[in-house]
Write a protein that binds this DNA or RNA. Structure first.
Lengths: 184, 184
DNA sequence: CGCACCATGTAATGCGTTACATGATTTT
DNA sequence: AAAATCATGTAACGCATTACATGGTGCG
């Protein structure tokens, strides 16, 4: 799937592996992230498959940059993927839910502490979606006006993050309340 | 992490690999699932580590069963894990969001069809949480009354699934509406 | 002087899926 | 007669993380 993230960005502009990580971090990173090492490895295999091609740009006083561009074959692969419907649900793993499931014989205070810690983290993330994420979209559109057609969709994925975090916080509040006031 | 799922169930009762998959499917499976092949492989390495031990039970007209039980070391590992707080957020990957992010140059009708298909799937899953999941908890408590202390926590994880699916459907409705009525 | 940034990669390890392999019994 | 259930596992492969490896520039 990381392949399609890469093809997606290469459909916007040419880019290096290093820069790709930067772009991913502030955009698709909220729902599809990758480490640099994986990005470099994936770029390599994608070039071997003919989905992308690269040229090396020499720089003075900086390491050489390997700049990637999408091939016709790569564009076709991206379109084919976009047009293929997802026919099942992805089950998301969640370690906190797992812990809660088996937490009956745990000390209540320790459990509550952990739930409150998670609440803080989700609160922070919510604010990130509400503040930085909106700004990041605006800035990208200012820099690349030809991508303004993409911005509404980026906004929809940002909105998902907002709703997800609101839901998670709501559930944590409910859950904390139930554990604080058992069997009422 | 699958190790802790297994330790968790083995803290309830002894069990075979085959049965473990059954229990996981209808309970933690909503937030932590595994294939049989992975379960068998994990059981093997856990026994080597001394977290669990097994005995073989011969059966007539059925294959032998290898029944696992938790060791003291295993119980300690489970407790230690439960008491260790999770200090960061897990980022959940979502292929649908990824697709939407790069969908600007896609045919609108194809995209809408895909979103509506997802809506159906989430609607089904929501009903599963609201119906089967509640019943499954009740039945387990009837069968193992000593686990009634665990049931409220299982219910909390079920509730998460319900809220998650409601949120996802709400977001899909919003998103479908925006794509049907662009820039109003 | 030390840290962050730019820029590239490889190797080892772990987690997870798919496919392969077997075979009797029970249900439809 | 075919499919599902019970019951066990191994092997190959793919995806992802962590650690290793290198080295110059710019900033505080």
């Amino acid at each position: 799937m990381l392949q399609y993230v890469i093809l997606g960005f290469l459909s916007y502009f040419t880019i290096t592996g290093y820069e790709l990580e930067r772009y991913i971090n502030v955009s698709t990173g909220h729902f599809w992230h990758a480490k640099l090492s994986q990005i470099y490895a994936t770029l390599k295999t994608m070039e071997q498959k003919g989905l992308i091609r690269s040229t090396i740009e020499a720089q003075e006083s900086r390491p050489d940059r390997r700049i990637y561009e999408i091939t016709d074959e790569g564009s076709k692969a991206l379109q084919a993927w976009l047009n293929t419907p997802i026919t099942d649900l992805e089950i998301k793993k969640d370690a906190l839910l797992l812990k809660l499931f088996f937490a009956a014989r745990m000390d209540h205070q320790t459990l509550l502490m952990q739930l409150r810690l998670q609440r803080d983290l989700h609160q922070q993330k919510l604010q990130q979606y509400q503040q930085e994420a909106s700004i990041a979209i605006e800035e990208t559109v200012n820099q690349y006006p030809e991508l303004s057609i993409d911005a509404p969709l980026w906004e929809m994925t940002r909105r998902f993050g907002e709703l997800y975090e609101e839901m998670y916080i709501r559930w944590l509040d409910e859950t904390i309340h139930k554990i604080e006031n058992p069997s009422t």
